[in-house]
């Protein structure tokens, strides 16, 4: 009886969450951000941030329109338009379709952007600039695409300080050897 109790206690005493299993496995996540729309910026930010919180090494690569997320002059002013998005419905009004023709009316993009920003803020989720700061502070790596920078005639000074460098596509491939990859 004494033996049973002791073995039970020993076994149970060791029952602790295995926090460092994945962290030690060297799991890496690479996310390519190619869009500059407000609604397309968030998936990368949310997933990258979640991965960092799980001890996963995270690299974000900004290319083409994704540059608007790291360009100091544009990152705070990403927009959301439902033009071409037939899934759009007013908040909470599932099954109610917004006529596509209305999406092109003057002021409509500003209105839908404001609405989406409010919904995001209501969840206490930060805006894009603060979110990128948070990802950097959590150990995430931000990289800018060389070709996009050359096309848009942008330099490191134009980009937020958290960006570690402007690198080529092959540099990014080397950096993310063995990583899981998301293209957004």
């Amino acid at each position: 009886m004494t033996t049973d109790v002791t073995s039970q206690v020993n076994e149970e005493t060791s029952f602790v969450p295995s926090f460092d299993d994945e962290a030690e496995s060297g799991r890496k996540l690479a996310i390519i951000c190619s869009k500059g729309n407000l609604d397309m910026a968030y998936p990368a930010l949310i997933l990258g941030n979640a991965a960092l919180g799980e001890g996963i090494e995270v690299h974000l690569f900004f290319t083409f329109w994704g540059f608007d997320m790291i360009n100091k002059r544009t990152q705070g002013d990403l927009q959301f338009s439902y033009l071409g998005n037939t899934a759009m419905h007013p908040p909470g009004m599932f099954g109610v379709h917004m006529p596509q023709g209305m999406a092109g009316l003057p002021g409509m993009t500003a209105a839908t952007t404001k609405m989406m920003k409010k919904q995001i803020a209501d969840l206490d989720v930060p805006e894009v600039p603060e979110f990128l700061e948070m990802i950097h502070a959590s150990g995430g790596h931000l990289w800018a695409c060389r070709m996009s920078a050359d096309m848009m005639k942008l330099h490191e000074d134009d980009l937020i300080d958290e960006v570690e460098g402007i690198i080529s596509a092959s540099d990014f491939m080397e950096l993310t050897d063995g990583a899981q990859l998301l293209f957004i």
Partner: peptide, 16 residues
């Protein structure tokens, strides 16, 4: 700041 929290509770601060 988040960086400090990662320093105090490494790798998985929220869960730890």
């Amino acid at each position: 700041d988040v960086k400090t929290l990662f320093g105090l509770f490494p790798k998985k601060p929220a869960k730890k």
